[in-house]
Design a protein around this nucleic acid. Structure first.
Lengths: 162, 162
DNA sequence: CTTTGCAGTTGTACTATACAACTACAGCGG
DNA sequence: CCGCTGTAGTTGTATAGTACAACTGCAAAG
C-alpha cells in the first residue's frame, strides 16, 4: 500500500502480483463460462462426456476406474456418465475375461463419429476465436497452459492427507 | 494428409493448428477441473457465488439483472444464488426507492470479509502454483488470457439469432 | 471355504442451472 | 383515472452433474 513508486520500474514482486491477479481472474472467468458455453454449442455431448470419450479414444479403451482417477471424479459419477453414453450408443462396455470385476470401455463407431464431429466443431470455434493471433503467440500461450495444467490435483475420494 | 514435409520447417498453418489443438485441450482440461477444485478449496463459497460477490464489490452494488447479463446466467439462477447469499448474510438486498421493481444488491460487511478471505486463499493457491514462473512469463500468460477472454459470449436467454 | 479387498452400481441428496409462468411495478395512451 | 404493455425479479418445475454411502459381484489370500 505504501510502496508507491509509479514512475520507477516496479519491483518484480509487484509485477508478479499483478500478473497472478490477472491470471486468477481470467482463469476463473473462463472456468465459469466454459461449461455452459460448451453445453450451448453441443447439446448432445457435455464437456465431461466429451472428455471421457476423448480419453477412450486416446487410450483405445480403458476401465471406469481409470477415468475416475484421471479426471478426479467419483467412480459413481463415471459409472453414470458411462451408462448414459452406453445408452446413447456411443460407448460399448464389455467384461474383462481375465477379471470379471473389470469392465473395459471402448468407443463405438457412433461414439467415434460423434466425438470426431464435436472435436471438429470445437476446433472451428477455437480457430475462429484465435484466428487473428500470431502463430508465435499461439505457441507461447499453448506452452503456458501446458505448464499451468501440469500440476497434481486431489481426487475427491482423497482426503488430501488429512 | 498429403502435406508431409516433416523434415522441413513446418508451415505456419501447421504450427497454428498444433498450438490451437493444445490450447483447446488444456483449456478444456482446466475448465473441467476448476469447479470441483474451487468447491473443495472453499466449501463456503462456490465459484459462481464468488464471482457474484466479486462483481458486487467491484461495482459497489448492482442489480440482479446486471449480474445475469454480465455472467450469461439466467435471471432465475441469479435470483436463487443471491437469495442464498442473502440467507447466508453475505449480501443485503434493498428496494430501489425510485423504481420499486429494482432490487439493489450490496455486500454486507460479512460478505466483504468472506470475499476477502476467499480471495486471499485463492491468491495463495495461485501464488504457490505459479511460484516458479518468471515474471515475464506471468505477464505474457496474463495478457494472453485477457486477450483470449476478451470475446463476446451469448447469454442463455439469447437464442443466438436463430 | 472364509475373509478381505477391489471394481463397479445403485440409493439418496444436493447444487447449479434453465425455461416458463407468475407477481409487482412503471410508463404510456386514452 | 384506467387499462395495456413492458420490465425486474421470484417461484414452479425439470434436468444434469456430482458426491458419499451402501451394496453386489468377483478375486485373491489364508
Amino acid at each position: 500500500m505504501t510502496t508507491e513508486t509509479s514512475d520507477s520500474p516496479r519491483p518484480d514482486d509487484e509485477r508478479r502480483s499483478a500478473a497472478v491477479e490477472t491470471i486468477q481472474r481470467e482463469m476463473t472467468a473462463f472456468a465459469r463460462r466454459a461449461r455452459s458455453a460448451a453445453a450451448r454449442m453441443h447439446p448432445e455431448l457435455s464437456l465431461v462426456s466429451f472428455t471421457l470419450l476423448s480419453h477412450l479414444e486416446e487410450r483405445h479403451g480403458c476401465r471406469a476406474g481409470d477415468l475416475a482417477a484421471h479426471y478426479a471424479l467419483d467412480k459413481s459419477t463415471v459409472s453414470r456418465q458411462i451408462a448414459a453414453l452406453e445408452r446413447a450408443g456411443l460407448v460399448v462396455r464389455r467384461t474383462d475375461p481375465d477379471d470379471h470385476r473389470v469392465h473395459v470401455l471402448e468407443l463405438s463407431p457412433e461414439g467415434a463419429a460423434t466425438l470426431a464431429r464435436t472435436v471438429r466443431e470445437r476446433r472451428a470455434m477455437f480457430d475462429e476465436r484465435l484466428s487473428d493471433w500470431h502463430p508465435d503467440d499461439l505457441d507461447r500461450f499453448a506452452s503456458y497452459l501446458l505448464r499451468y495444467n501440469d500440476h497434481p490435483s486431489q481426487p475427491p475420494g482423497t482426503p488430501a492427507d488429512n
